[in-house]
Simulated scan of single mutants.
Amino acid sequence: MSKVKYYYDSETLSYRKIEKKKGRKLSIALLSFLGIVLSGFLFFVIFINLPYVETPKEKSLERELANMEFQFDLLNKKMEQAEEVLAEVADRDNNLYRVYFEANPIPETQRKAGFGGINRYKDLEGFDNSRLIISSSKRLDILTKQIVVQSRSLDEVAKLAEEKEKLLEAIPAIQPVKNEDLTRMASGYGFRTDPFTKARKMHFGMDFTAPRGTPVYASGDGRVTRADNNSSGYGNHIRIDHGFGYQSLYAHLYKYNVRQGQKVKRGDLIGFVGSTGRSEAPHLHYEIFKDNERINPINFYYGNLSPEEFADMLKSAQQENQSLD
């Protein structure tokens, strides 16, 4: 049985019974239901937002992830700088070094080729930042490959430079008799009158007239392959193999200053002017061979003649006079 409640009425100076109003229970019920609904909604909002509530550990991991992305960004910028430097080196390599040493340039497709075949980056897939990691890895791999290609190219250029230096030392590039020792340049390369038959025939060398015993010098580095008189017409003569297809011949010598098999340097004294063999007077008959073919020696005196001296020699060599052998 519910308790009866009273209140004091000051007007009648008596206690009056509190009458329950109609609908009060309904209001209380509605308020209770509304409270339950609001509480449920609040719990629902909290529940769906739980993933966005960060714990200290999650905040630490988020900072590490941001730092990793920052480091990858720095790495890509460094790779970009390296690519620019490598591109400049490759440009000089193709258009300067390899041109100078007469080597074919390396095609751009070969320099910047990727990697075909299987997926090299499969293990990097499936992560939150897989795209960034794979992209950076690909770029780094291609850059590494370009460096390897460029390194091999520079190794080749270094070898070519070494060979070029040897070639420049080997080419027969000086006059075998000094200008001050010459009587005259008697005959050049080309058709000349034979001193014995008086017939016009090809003269395959140059004749330098000088007194008997005048020093004769090696015109380039090489090895003496012959120093004898066993070749018809040449008398005492020396042949030097300079390598790279070049040979030089010094004929009608009075005597030798070298022996077969001896290595010589450009400017070394190898013999002395004479008139042995098929010769009309003391002189040096000088020939140059390239790949076993006789070529005009006039094109190989840049090592010790001034432009004026070369012009005078060229003028004398072009005269169709009588040869001395």
Score class of each variant (00 low, 15 high):
Ser2Asn: 14
Ser2Asp: 15
Lys5Trp: 05
Lys5Phe: 11
Tyr7Cys: 09
Tyr8Asp: 06
Lys17Phe: 08
Lys20Met: 03
Lys20Asp: 15
Lys20His: 07
Lys21Gln: 10
Lys22Cys: 01
Gly23His: 09
Leu26His: 07
Ile28Asp: 11
Ser32Gln: 08
Phe33Ser: 12
Leu38Gln: 08
Phe41Pro: 07
Phe41Met: 14
Phe43Glu: 12
Val45Gln: 15
Lys57Tyr: 08
Ser60Trp: 08
Glu62Tyr: 09
Glu62Asn: 15
Arg63Pro: 05
Arg63Thr: 12
Glu64Leu: 15
Leu65Ile: 12
Ala66Met: 07
Phe70Ile: 09
Gln71Gly: 08
Phe72Val: 14
Asp73Phe: 12
Leu75Glu: 11
Leu75Lys: 07
Ala82Asp: 13
Glu83Met: 08
Glu84Gly: 13
Ala87Cys: 14
Val89Phe: 06
Ala90Ile: 10
Asp91Ala: 14
Tyr97Asn: 13
Glu108Val: 08
Arg111Tyr: 07
Gly114Met: 06
Phe115Ser: 15
Gly117Tyr: 10
Ile118Asp: 12
Asn119Ile: 07
Arg120Pro: 11
Tyr121Cys: 10
Asp123Gly: 13
Gly126Met: 03
Gly126Thr: 07
Gly126Pro: 08
Phe127Asn: 15
Phe127Ser: 13
Phe127Cys: 13
Asp128Val: 14
Leu132Ser: 12
Ile134Leu: 00
Lys138Glu: 10
Arg139Asn: 10
Leu140Trp: 07
Asp141Phe: 02
Lys145Trp: 00
Gln146Met: 13
Val148Ile: 11
Val149Leu: 03
Val149Arg: 03
Ser151Asp: 06
Ser153Lys: 11
Lys164Cys: 01
Lys164Phe: 06
Glu165Asp: 15
Lys166Trp: 08
Leu167Tyr: 13
Leu167Arg: 06
Leu168Met: 11
Ile171Arg: 01
Ala173His: 09
Ile174Cys: 06
Pro176Ser: 04
Lys178Asp: 10
Asn179Met: 10
Glu180Tyr: 04
Arg184His: 11
Met185Val: 08
Ala186Met: 00
Asp194Ile: 03
Pro195Phe: 00
Phe196Met: 04
Arg200Leu: 07
Arg200Ser: 10
His203Val: 00
Phe204Met: 04
Gly205Ile: 02
Met206Arg: 01
Ala210His: 05
Pro211Cys: 02
Pro215Phe: 02
Ser219Thr: 00
Gly220Cys: 04
Arg223Lys: 10
Ala227Phe: 04
Ser231Met: 09
Ser232Cys: 04
Ser232Gln: 10
Gly233Met: 01
His237Leu: 02
Asp241Trp: 00
Gly245Ala: 03
Leu253Thr: 04
Tyr256Phe: 11
Tyr256Trp: 05
Tyr256Ser: 01
Gly261Pro: 08
Gly261Leu: 04
Val264Thr: 05
Lys265Phe: 04
Gly267Ser: 02
Gly267Tyr: 03
Asp268Tyr: 01
Gly271His: 09
Thr276Ala: 03
Gly277Gln: 01
Gly277His: 02
Arg278Met: 06
Ser279Lys: 01
Ser279Val: 05
Pro282Lys: 04
His285Asp: 08
Lys290His: 14
Arg294Val: 09
Asn299Phe: 09
Phe300Glu: 03
Tyr301Lys: 01
Tyr301Phe: 13
Gly303Tyr: 14
Ala311Phe: 06
Ala311Cys: 08
Ala311Asn: 12
Asp312Glu: 10
Gln318Cys: 12
Asn321His: 01
Gln322Tyr: 00
Leu324Tyr: 00
Asp325Lys: 05
